[in-house]
């Protein structure tokens, strides 16, 4: 399985070089706006999706199944690589902004952490839905399906916020509760989503023919 993880890292190697350079540039501007923390995380996943494209394009899966590895392992390797890439990106972004922030005396952990955590959560959410879609419909259709999904959900949320009257006391309670347990709660949700997504992808991949 290590071989498969290596394979994806090697495919990404050129992109990753530019990506690291980009994070560096971003980290410099990070003090201007916090939204900048989201960007590297999203780009890392866009880069990772190219490994699915290459798999499709070079008919890699047909061959991978003939290797002495189970189909489960092939899917698991993807999830592990994706996980490693996410954690790596978050860590590097954090360390860089810490380094630069310390030099320029503008580093505030309380500001950076929620941003990175929020970015990570959005990303796990995105990937958890996207990978099963990619395994089911192929990279191109999976990607399109995801964009449609994101627009639909944001549209729906926008509509609800504008049209549904919110019970303010309940909402305040919720915010208070969230401030207290949010990180823990979201962490649990992330693990459940990502692991659940793996099992769904595995089911799809087991039945799939190439």
């Amino acid at each position: 399985m290590l071989g498969l993880i290596k394979k994806d890292l090697l495919i990404m190697r050129n992109n990753l070089k530019y990506f690291l350079l980009m994070i560096l540039v971003f980290a410099f501007f990070a003090k201007e706006s916090n939204i900048i923390y989201f960007i590297p995380i999203f780009i890392s996943i866009m880069i990772f999706i190219t490994t699915f494209s290459y798999d499709d394009y070079n008919k890699w899966n047909t061959y991978a199944i003939t290797l002495p590895l189970s189909r489960e392992k092939i899917v698991l390797a993807k999830y592990i690589t994706s996980f490693l890439l996410m954690i790596g990106t978050v860590l590097i972004t954090f360390l860089l902004s810490f380094a630069i922030g310390t030099i320029t005396h503008s580093f505030h952990f309380d500001e950076v952490f929620p941003m990175l955590f929020g970015g990570l959560f959005a990303l796990v959410l995105l990937q958890s839905f996207m990978y099963p879609l990619i395994y089911q419909f192929g990279t191109e259709k999976g990607r399109i399906g995801l964009f449609v999904g994101v627009f639909a959900v944001s549209g729906l949320v926008g509509y609800l916020v504008n049209h549904v009257k919110i019970n303010t006391t309940a909402f305040t309670h919720f915010i208070q509760f969230f401030n207290q347990y949010g990180i823990l709660l979201l962490s649990i949700v992330m693990v459940i989503l990502f692991v659940g997504s793996y099992f769904v992808s595995k089911r799809i991949y087991l039945k799939k023919e190439f």
Binding site: K7, L10, I11, N14, Y54, D55, Y57, N58, K59, W60, T62, Y63, T66
Partner: peptide
Amino acid sequence: HVGVVLDQSFFPELL
């Protein structure tokens, strides 16, 4: 222990 060569190229072309 099987060695396989498929009809189309199958190695990722960036490798």
